[in-house]
């Protein structure tokens, strides 16, 4: 089942990348990043069946980092919305050179 896991993981990761590149809503962008993290987790679990349980430990750590990232990222989005009253990334270009 390793090849199948890698196949589904590749497709999910690609969908996540396409979402990040084509959407402008900051919240949906964040959810696409979560989807990419999930795809990587599937790769880890698939390999952990062949190489040992270390991969599952990494999935555990990735989930913790994803939770931290969601907390900070959503706080940033709320702070942005408070200042600009939008989450459309087209209108948020404060750091654009």
């Amino acid at each position: 089942m390793l090849a199948e896991s890698l196949f589904f993981s590749a497709v999910l990761f690609t969908i996540g990348v396409i979402g990040v590149l084509t959407r402008r809503n900051a919240i949906i962008l964040f959810m696409c990043v979560e989807l990419m993290l999930n795809a990587v987790n599937l790769t880890f679990v698939g390999f952990s069946r062949v190489y040992g349980a270390g991969g599952q430990v990494f999935v555990f750590l990735v989930m913790t980092v994803a939770a931290a990232e969601a907390a900070v990222g959503l706080a940033i989005i709320i702070a942005l919305f408070r200042h600009r009253h939008t989450v459309d990334l087209q209108n948020i270009n404060l750091l654009k050179g």
Partner: peptide, 25 residues
């Protein structure tokens, strides 16, 4: 809040997606 980016971005996303898929396969 319809929020898809323009055609250029979509083409770029498609190209990146195809590249990634080919790489991982």
């Amino acid at each position: 809040i319809a929020d898809a980016r323009g055609l250029g971005w979509k083409l770029a996303a498609g190209a990146v997606g195809l590249g990634l898929l080919a790489e991982i396969f």
